[in-house]
Design a protein around this nucleic acid. Structure first.
Lengths: 199, 199, 199, 199
DNA sequence: GCATAACCGAGACGGTACGTCCAGTCTTTCT
DNA sequence: AGAAAGACTGGACGTACCGTCTCGGTTATGC
């Protein structure tokens, strides 16, 4: 079990912890991050404000934790990308799925909230990379290494750079709403990246 | 001259307008966007709060305008990228410069503030693209079209996609602090992109 | 007009001032002083809490002011005791009236509140003596001096002491509920005091 | 021994009881009654809050009990006033001593606290009269009856009234800080009272 | 050339939320 | 079972800002 989902202390009320995280997730979806308040979370969760302040240092930290619980199945570590043997097809599948996820209104508000916080809070950014991004990044790199072995990716390709080329434009367009986020765009990203690093 | 820098009315006090924008720029650097308040801007500018509310709809709009004045020379439209005839060299120059700008503490706080607002405010995002991004994008595209003519870039290359590949990873790394932002990274981005779209 | 009933500033909202004082008076009667809260006063008065904190330093000060307005007719200074020429009869009238006032539930809660505050706050006690007690004391002394001139009171009687003997036992019994507060007691106080200082 | 000073149960920790009462007495002196909190008492006494709530119904009750222990010698009933045969001299001695006690800073805070509570809590007032006041009152009355027998006090004097005249002005002046509390005042009270009830 | 209306600085106003403190209750662990 | 410890819900505290609203005091035309 991931450590953040366990009580920090044996005295801690699991009931309250879950109620707070649930309320935060709901409210950030309903109101957006800026209009979300600690008082509203406490009220919705049926909890004293002090219980929130006792266990989280800031609104951002609560929301962050509430998002962590979203993306966490029974086995938080077992993320794996499809590997059909065809790198281009697999990447297109994955990027199309990511683009679709960005369009899902249930994810939109929390993820924008998360990014808002991360931009302005280096400490939270560090936690984010550790807890959320790294497992995903590792899974992606495993797929890319498999592609290298299969001769579908240049052996000397910098995997971090490859992932940046694939994902940064997608995230950027979504965050700044600077262009369409359709499957054509996802495909074009994959194709361009593989032109740069393929073989 | 851009309309936002001109008085909206002949009655408007230019002295106050400048004082407010200056105070906003200073305070966002000192405090960060979140801790910045309209009251503090008014106090620092020696201005009544109403004068701010009269001319700007939100804190974000003030900060946005204050950043506009930053990036505006005597002629806001005349941005031009270097064109030595060597696309790769020119792009590396420009991307290295962009990376350096991101590291400048005088730019850091306001630009983070700007991005925070843009993520959460679609209307502001639209204005941002119109006023700040488009002129830059146009200049970049002019340079890329020149490269196409010179046979240094594929004739059918999607210029928006090329620019995304070049700039999104840079911006992303800076915003999320997810990796080093050095000249090697800038160069690698240019090289990869040209491998994908070169010839 | 007494100074405390005028706005401290030309900007001050008379409507709010009166609403706050009225709400305080009502609430102290309904809830008692201890259970009275600034938040409740603000809510009942339809006023922001800050408006209370802007003009009064403490809950005690608000309640005190609200009581001042109680005991203030169109002419705050013109208190006068009856003077029929018969000191004993007049004092009995006045002390009986005082005892009756203590029994009036509309006065009970505020006056207990006032005493609670005065006991623990020397600054408030000073204001109390200045604003509420002194006018009353002066009126009482005027009556006693008239009695001296009429030969009904020893010429060398210490008027402060006489007033203490008359009033302190009454107030004490009421505050501490240490005995009956009836007309017989009031009469006995007057008789004893006149035996000590009469002629 | 008075019941409040004995454990209410054989299980009760005498160590905790004493620690709580001591902490309460110290804290009321240091902070005054209003700023005194149950939490602070528990912390200073090294005791769980529950232990206080288990044995006392309110903050006032704890403070009251802590004051009882102050005024309680090995034999709580054995108070006796001096009886030299000279009533006036004896009363002056006692009233001067009372005035001096009021001036003692170690007594000041607790006794003000006690009065604050008594004014607002009829139940506590009853207990107060029973436990603290009555023994003192009885002792005083014994001395006055002795004076009656000696022909120094009118045989039909209402002893409660006599005591009110002697003590209420003293207590009043101290509580409301309405005048000097010196020996001259104590003497004048005795003299006036004996003029009213003497012979 | 003088009124008059928009703008200005100032700051009080009704509110909302903050982050803290404490009340009084409940639960866990130890003795 | 009582006690120390301390987390819990709840509610008030006093503060900071929000965005709105007067209040006088300049301007700066436009009648």
């Amino acid at each position: 079990m991931a450590p953040h989902s366990a009580p920090d202390s044996s005295r801690r009320s699991e009931r309250s912890r879950v109620a707070i995280l649930t309320a935060a997730r709901e409210l950030v979806t309903e109101l957006g991050y800026t209009r979300l308040t600690i008082e509203a979370i406490a009220a919705r969760a049926g909890v004293g404000k002090q219980t929130i302040y006792r266990w989280w240092p800031s609104k951002g930290a609560v929301v962050f934790d509430s998002i962590l619980t979203l993306s966490e199945g029974p086995d938080g570590e077992g993320v794996e990308l499809p590997d059909t043997g065809d790198l281009e097809a697999d990447l297109k599948t994955v990027l199309r799925a990511t683009a679709a996820e960005f369009a899902d209104p249930a994810f939109e508000a929390p993820i924008r909230a998360l990014n808002t916080e991360i931009i302005n809070d280096p400490a939270l950014a560090e936690t984010y990379r550790e807890k959320l991004e790294r497992p995903m990044t590792e899974a992606k790199k495993r797929r890319l290494r498999s592609a290298k072995r299969a001769g579908q990716l240049a052996a000397d390709a910098d995997l971090d750079l490859v992932l940046d080329l694939l994902y940064a434009p997608l995230t950027q367009r979504w965050l700044l709403r600077s262009g369409p986020l359709d499957e054509a765009f996802a495909d074009a990203l994959v194709e361009a990246t593989l032109r740069a690093f393929g073989r």
